[in-house]
């Protein structure tokens, strides 16, 4: 079966979804990422959705699942590159993706993942700085 490639960049996993994401493929990505996080002991996962033309309730749920699963495995997930029209549609659809950490592009997403890796003691001030 077709698979979405997962790249290891330093201690982070990088995924760029460049195909029309059908439901089975989305679920396969969820499984592969979860397995890979444990296998390479990744500290973070970055998912680039800039090529995704839609995020419907199914894809949205899979993105939310990936965030929840990586959190359970001690890693952080960031979704980057959401198109403005997609964001507008998600809100009108009624999808609550507030559990997702997002950034505007891959660069900022990577910066966010690095920031989240700082020692626990400094996390409180980091969070207020992000806002």
């Amino acid at each position: 079966m077709e698979r979405i490639p997962i790249l290891l960049v330093g201690e982070f996993l990088l995924v760029s979804i460049q195909v029309d994401l059908h439901d089975r493929l989305a679920l396969a990505l969820q499984d592969d990422l979860t397995t890979e996080v444990v296998k390479v002991r990744a500290k973070g996962v970055l998912i680039d959705i800039s090529s995704l033309e839609i995020v419907d309730s199914f894809i949205g749920r899979v993105l939310g699942n990936i965030a929840a699963l990586t959190a359970m495995l001690g890693a952080n997930a960031v979704v980057v590159g959401m198109r403005p029209a997609v964001a507008i549609t998600i809100v009108e659809l009624g999808l609550d993706l507030s559990c997702l950490r997002t950034a505007i592009n891959v660069d900022q997403g990577m910066a966010m993942l690095r920031l989240l890796l700082r020692p626990v003691a400094s996390q409180g001030s980091d969070e207020s700085a992000e806002k």
Binding site: D23, E53, I54, D56, S57, F58, R83, A85, I88, T89
Partner: peptide, 17 residues
Amino acid sequence: NLVEQTKMVTAASELGR
């Protein structure tokens, strides 16, 4: 326009599913 396209395609995806 892009927003109209995205809404229509997303609705079609939900209903098709």
